[in-house]
Design a protein around this nucleic acid. Structure first.
Length: 425
RNA sequence: GGAGAGGUGGCUGAGUGGUCGAAAGCACCGGAUUGCUAAUUCGGCGUAGGAAGAAAUUCUUACCGCAGGUUCAAAUCCUGUCCUCUCCGCCA
């Protein structure tokens, strides 16, 4: 959520930003309602002030006068209530508009309508593999080594669910170990988070559960939802808290399962593990001071690159265009790994995403920082970044490291955790 | 899941209808003082919003887990809810 005062004072900027983002928002209406709300607020406060003053007199007043003063107080409170309810109605309407206004955008982010305008800004260290044999996709490789069972997943939970088996399980554990250990070395605090979160927390992060087209599974007759990413729980972890500035940036690496309904994704054909209803993810999250967030964002991007370089997976880094940014993101980088089994001769597929959300999430979650010996507090900035989304990382590892005989070479970085050099030998 | 207790400022902890944004202590900040030194003393010290001002600052509203209610007036009374603790039950 943006700051109301900021929107009011920068209506034209915000409007232009909404246009670039492709999210129409009623900024003019917001300005009109907000100005009205402010006058209502002052009126209500003035009535309240008078009423408080009146109440204060009663204790000292002579008994004979009390009834008259009480009556006066009653009237003032009634007037206050009347104005207050007008104010509250406006406030609700304003909040609804504001919820739909996306974050402002980093000036360097490419402007464009959709992912076609995304800008490739870097490539990984590993070259796209050229196979002198017919490359298999991860489904074929998985079948060969009995690693993935979609049929059983469907029996138990429906289409889009799966069982990992045998070496896929070792691969999942190895990827987790590898990523978590690397991030701990970079000062991240490892966290294993709840896989459910209440609706307020989801709203704070910018998700809208229980609506049409929602990506979120909700648990019936409760206020709980299955998390779509540990970003939700990691961000919510410090909701309402004031963090000491000297402890920032605070960097967390969370492990959680992620659940996504993929409603509305039916048209986006994808096979195998690429788009599934549940996967495990290692997620980075950071709370920073405002002047730290750009640097930490670059750090998260670099860490994602380090991880995929170490996995010897070819990738490109994309600077996400305005129209393709999620609501809370100020700037977003995606890593797209080369997946030889996608399309006819391989395609890029998104494997990580890191966003600087500035104070957009912190405002609703009310996460602030305090600097020693300084008065007041300020909203922190929040950032998130995928370290390893297991399902997609597995695709990239299996497909890029396959050999002519169908065995899969385990990248050196994973061998200590896998305990083997090849899958299928 | 059942029974009981409790949620107050950075911390401890008073406060059961008006004089309470809230005693006291600790911590912290500023000044003074100091040959007995983890001392003494004076003062300051919550957060958010609004108004005025160039600014220091001043005025004002809200906030005592959260949401409602009663009342001219609520930290204080009532209802709901969340959380914590203790005991019991169940259990990986």
């Amino acid at each position: 959520m943006l700051d109301r005062k900021f929107v009011l004072e920068n209506a034209e900027l915000v409007k232009a930003n909404c246009t670039h983002r492709g999210t129409p928002a009623e900024i003019d209406k917001f300005v009109e309602l907000e100005l009205l709300r402010k006058t209502k607020l002052s009126q209500a406060e003035e009535f309240n002030r008078q009423a408080n003053a009146t109440s204060a007199k009663i204790g000292a007043a002579a008994p004979a006068e009390r009834e008259a003063i009480k009556e006066q107080g009653r009237k003032l409170r009634e007037q206050k209530e009347a104005v207050q309810s007008e104010h509250d109605a406006l406030d609700k309407e304003i909040a609804a508009i504001l919820t739909r206004v996306p974050n402002m955008t980093h000036p360097a982010a490419p402007i464009g309508r959709d992912d076609q305008a995304n800008l490739e800004i870097a490539r990984g260290k590993t070259a796209i593999p050229t196979f002198d044999f017919q490359a298999k996709d991860h489904l074929q490789l998985g079948k060969l080594h009995d690693m993935i069972d979609f049929e059983a997943g469907a029996r138990v939970a429906g289409a889009g669910f799966y069982f990992l088996k045998n070496d896929a399980v070792l691969l999942e554990l190895a990827l987790q170990q590898f990523a978590v250990h690397l991030l701990i070395k970079h000062g991240f605090v490892p966290v294993s988070t709840p896989d459910v979160a209440n609706t307020e927390t989801l709203h704070g992060i910018g998700f809208i559960p229980r609506g049409p087209e929602t990506q979120i599974y909700s648990i019936e007759n409760t206020d709980l939802n299955l998390v779509a990413t540990a970003e939700i729980t990691l961000g919510g972890m410090y909701a309402g808290q004031v963090l000491e500035a000297e402890n920032l940036p605070l960097k967390l690496v969370g492990i959680s399962h992620c659940f996504r309904t993929e409603a509305g994704a039916a048209g986006r054909a994808s096979k195998g593990l690429y788009r599934v209803h549940q996967f495990t993810k290692i997620e980075m999250f950071a709370f920073t001071l405002p002047n730290q967030s750009d640097a930490v964002h670059e750090e998260l991007r670099q860490l994602e690159c380090d991880l995929f370089d170490a996995l010897e997976i070819p990738y490109r880094v994309v600077d996400t265009a305005t129209g393709d940014l999620g609501g809370p993101a100020y700037r977003k980088y995606d890593l797209e790994a080369w997946m030889p089994g996608r399309g006819t001769a391989g395609e890029w597929g998104e494997v990580t995403s890191t966003s600087n959300c500035t104070d957009y999430q912190a405002r609703r979650l009310n996460i602030r920082s305090r600097t020693k010996n300084e008065k007041g507090t300020q909203l922190v900035h929040t950032l998130n970044g995928t370290a390893i989304a297991i399902s997609r990382a597995i695709i990239a590892v299996m497909e890029n490291h396959q050999l002519a005989d169908g065995t899969i070479r385990v990248p050196a970085a994973l061998r200590p955790w896998m305990g083997k050099e090849f899958i299928g030998k």
